[in-house]
Structure formats: C-alpha cells, structure tokens
Design a protein around this nucleic acid. Structure first.
Lengths: 193, 193
DNA sequence: CGGTTTCTGGAATGATTGTTCCAGAAACCG
DNA sequence: CGGTTTCTGGAACAATCATTCCAGAAACCG
C-alpha cells in the first residue's frame, strides 16, 4: 500500500486560518500559506483544493475552535451579566495587548467577501445565527435566574449583542484608546439593566 | 502654454471611491479603476500617484461627501431621536434594497487594512472621531431639549452609537433578514430612553 | 498660425499571482 | 525486501498585477 500523510491536517488548517484571519483573503498569497502551514505546495492543493476552498474550510475551523470559546464562556455557570462583561472586556484587552489586532475572522470575512461571495455570506450567516443562539440561551438563563428583567425581547437583545460585539471588534482595529472602547462596552451592557 | 485637463478631478476621484468602496482595496485592480474612472491610465498615475495613494484620497473623499450626509442629517432641526432612527433605518433600507451592499467605506477600510497600514488606521480614527463628535453634539442638543435624560454620559453614548452603526452595517452585509436588522436597531436606540 | 506643453492610448515592463506538471525520495504492506 | 502509492521540492505555467515608457494627438497662448 501507500505512504501516510506526513503532516497533521487539522494543524495545517489551523495555521491557514491564522494567516487568513490576520491578513484577509485577497492579501494572503498561496506562498504565504505554504510558508505558514509548513506543508508542501502540492500537498496544499491535494488536501484542501484551491485557495478559495481552503479559505472556506478555514472559516469552518474558526467556528469549531474560536467561536466555541465564546459558547463555553456563555454556558459557564454563574451570573450571565458577568459572562457577557468578560466577553466584551476580552475583546478590549486583546485589542490593547501588543499582538496583532485581527478582529473577528467571521466579521473580517463578511466585510471583505460577503458582498460578492455567496458561500462566504452563507457561512457568515450561519455563524451569526449560532452566536445569536448562544447569546439567546444565556439571556434566557439570566431571565430565569431573575437576573434580567422580563420585559425584554431576548431574541432582539441577543441580535443586538452580537452586532455590538462586531462593532466593538471593528473599533478596536482602528483605535487603542482604552476609554473609548470601554465606553462602548459600558453603554452596550447597560441595556441589560 | 499647455493643454488643460480633459477630465474633472473630483468626478474621477468620486468614481474611484465607489469602486474601492464596493470591492475593497486588494480586490480592486488598477485596470478596474481605469475602467470606472473613465480616464487614462497615465493620467491616473500623474494625478493621484499610485494605487495606495489613490485609495487614501478616496477615503478622504468619502469623508467629504458621504459622511457629510450623516452630519447634515444629525444637525437637521427636529427631535434628535427621530434623526437617529432615520440614520439607522437608512442603513437597514439600503441593505435590503436591491443594490450592492457596500457597507461603510471607513468600516471596510478599517477591517481590511487598519491592522497593517498605519495611514489607513489614522484616517479611520479621524473619521471615527468626527462621526462621534457629530453624534455627541446631536445628543447634547437632545439633552438641552429635554428629550434625553440627564443621567447619561453622552460622550460614551456617542461612541456606543457609532460602534453600533458599524456593527449594523456589517450585519447588513451578511443578511437580508429585515426583522433581525430591525431588532438590532430597536434595542440600540432603546438606550436613549 | 506655431511652438510648447500636457494629455492620451497602447504597448512594454518585471514582479507576483494561483495552479499544475514532473521526477525522485519516502514510506507503507504483502 | 519490492512493488506500489503518496508525498515532496522545485521548476514551469499562463494570467494578472502595478507601474512606466513612448510616440503622437490635442489644446493652449503668444
């Protein structure tokens, strides 16, 4: 029989995701990908198809790995408001940290491609819906715990929170003004009071 | 002496802005620009410098033309809340309309380039600050008119509103679900109550 | 007009793009 | 081992990229 794969597929995809996440689709060349993924050019095409297909797979990978972190944070026991504050503060802190400010991969993909690539738009919609659902469940839990007033349309609030998170992540790409970012977080979370 | 310019500089720049706005920086080729601007390739380089310089000038043009529309809307006499609702509803309507969903040029530029191009980040910051200021003035006017309660930190609310506007514009690139977008608008504006 | 300057269209540039081809090394398993 | 299969590195590919060069047409003003 035949030889086995030398590299770990998931690890290579993870690297690809990081490059696309940091640089976007158009600005990333296949050469960049080959360099960062640590695999052969031909292996890339054999395993993942072409560049566009790899990009879509990277988006899926993001959902499985990065977005899951958000889901876990929201499902953690304890006050929902505190979890939400951690979620938003986390964005601010990572934006003010020294590293590269990549924002949210899904947000970046939406901004760059959703307008002209149906597949990207569909994937972005799917991730939006999943995130919205996670936020909704968290809000529902907060309502049952008496933490959040009953008068609210929680579905609408969940949508609002996701939109706000995307807005905040965009802002944090342009500015390192901590006060400005925290102003946004504070007012956003005030709708829960 | 010499011959005069055949084309109108501002009109050409306006066209360039529209192309960059719709397609982003990397996905726009100089060939695209030449086609849509209706001027000669050499004239483009003579008049605007290289592609990157033209992009930055297009961002300035956006500020002068498109952002001004927002300023005027906010300074129009009448209830501030109504002006803000018009601002946000306008985003929803143009997203649901048949045209191409370009989002906000400044937001697009921030998402695509601010992370790795200082000049773009600076221009985006400048436009953010200008928009925030316009929102702040509008809120101040609303407060004086007794339309908005006095307990709020209006600077923070202005920042929040701009961030929310960017988030909404991003959402509207991925989905045409009117209810979802209007949910976001409704909850966002509820912070003014 | 005529001399000068600038605009214009198109070709040419060299670099880079995404993708594929090829020959050989490497690893599997009967 | 040995036959088979797949991986690997690098070259090769055509297309496109941003940019520049060039020769001629066009328009100005003395």
């Amino acid at each position: 029989m035949a030889r086995h794969k030398e590299f770990d597929r998931d690890e290579a995809l993870q690297r690809a995701m990081e490059v696309f996440w940091a640089r976007g689709y158009e600005a990333t060349s296949v050469g960049d990908l080959v360099g960062h993924m640590g695999i052969n050019r031909q292996s890339l095409y054999d395993t993942f198809g072409d560049k566009h297909s790899l990009y879509l797979q990277a988006l899926d990978r993001y959902r499985e790995v990065e977005a899951r972190k958000m889901f876990e944070l929201l499902e953690r026991p304890g006050p929902v408001k505190r979890a939400l504050r951690q979620l938003f503060e986390g964005v601010v802190e990572s934006a003010l940290g020294g590293g590269e400010r990549r924002g949210c991969f899904v947000g970046n993909a939406t901004s760059e491609l959703a307008g002209r690539c149906r597949q990207t738009a569909d994937k972005a919609c799917g991730q939006m819906a999943a995130a919205e659902e996670a936020l909704y469940r968290a809000l529902l839990r907060g309502k049952k715990a008496g933490e959040i007033g009953g008068g609210r349309d929680l579905r609408a609030v969940a949508r609002f929170l996701y939109s706000s998170l995307q807005g905040l992540q965009l802002m944090s790409k342009a500015t390192r003004d901590r006060k400005a970012l925290e102003d946004v977080v504070r007012v956003t979370l005030s709708v829960l009071d």
